[in-house]
């Protein structure tokens, strides 16, 4: 059974094929309106989400399929103590594919070990978020024309920012991507990303504290939110939450061709005055997320049917 737990589960060629398919759906959505007729997607969200859950549901609906599931652990049997493994075995009796978000890291992998239907990791704690990465890659490719030869600044919470971890893993497989990691000391990349992914790949990377000093070098700026829900200590969150706020003044030294991405939701790390700047891509990025999830659902269902 094929699952998507980590972006590294997909070969680079498969990622490119998925992005091509997503572009095709974007251009001609009417061709795919019956593609998943009689199929069901279960969205098992043990943690709140707006974009990811709704984009999965919209994706399945636009493919002609149906959706069932829950949007918080309290409304599932998890609140009675049911294990993740049992939950997916039961849901596999009712649905053809499962998208799962869980606050515990590795929960979708644990689920995939027992599941009879494909599992898609829709975010596991501060660990991975591969479908956001597919969204990010589609956005970069559409906005910059290529996934190769550019400098990306990753800014904010790089420690618990699961979207950042997955994106780095994916971009290290592209040609000539240079990484500039911008964070406070306490929110630096975890060792398994810095050493096992970045350093091992041989990619050029730097870790800095100041966004302004590197702004002129960047082709892509990936902003992230400092996530209150990842902190055990409220004081640490309050101290770090406003570390980086992107304002029009700070963008003055940026390239005119810069692409600003954000996985959303945003709190205050991007001034709303930037939203109308053509360099702001984050709402288009949210739109692309639906199309890339349509492509992924199609691929996994097709492989499961073989």
């Amino acid at each position: 059974m094929r699952h998507l737990i980590d972006i590294r589960d997909l070969a680079q060629g498969e990622i490119v094929s998925l992005l091509d398919l997503a572009d095709g759906i974007f251009a001609h959505p009417e061709d795919y309106r019956e593609a998943c007729r009689y199929k069901k997607l279960a969205t098992l969200f043990f943690e709140p989400s707006t974009r990811t859950r709704l984009s999965f549901e919209a994706a399945m609906m636009e493919l002609g399929g149906k959706v069932l599931g829950f949007s918080e652990a309290a409304s599932s049997s998890a609140s009675k103590g049911e294990s993740v493994s049992d939950t997916v075995r039961v849901v596999g009796c009712y649905a053809d594919v499962i998208a799962m978000r869980h606050p515990k890291e590795g929960a979708p992998l644990a689920a995939s070990l027992r599941s009879t239907v494909p599992i898609i990791n829709a975010g596991d704690g501060g660990h991975n978020h591969p479908t956001q990465t597919l969204t990010d890659l589609m956005t970069i490719r559409r906005e910059k024309g290529s996934l190769d030869n550019f400098t990306i600044g990753l800014c904010g919470d790089l420690k618990f920012g699961r979207t950042v971890h997955s994106l780095i893993a994916a971009l290290t497989r592209c040609e000539g991507v240079r990484f500039v990691c911008i964070s406070p000391e306490e929110l630096r990349l975890p060792g398994y990303v810095r050493q096992d992914v970045l350093a091992k790949s041989g990619a050029q990377f730097a870790e800095v504290r100041d966004l302004a000093e590197v702004m002129p070098e960047l082709d892509v700026l990936y902003m992230t939110r400092v996530q209150r829900e990842r902190f055990f200590n409220e004081e640490d969150y309050l101290r770090l939450k406003d570390s980086y706020i992107l304002t029009p003044a700070k963008l003055e030294s940026a390239k005119r061709s810069l692409a600003i991405l954000h996985p959303l939701p945003r709190v205050n790390e991007i001034d709303t005055a930037i939203d109308d700047d053509p360099r702001a891509c984050y709402f288009r990025q949210a739109l692309y997320g639906k199309f890339v999830r349509m492509a992924l659902i199609l691929k996994l269902l097709e492989e499961a049917g073989k």
Binding site: V84, A110, G126
Partner: peptide
């Protein structure tokens, strides 16, 4: 030892 890991709560893993 990661308190956020699924192994801390999932039985039989």
């Amino acid at each position: 030892r990661n308190p956020r890991c699924i192994t801390t709560v999932e039985p039989g893993l």
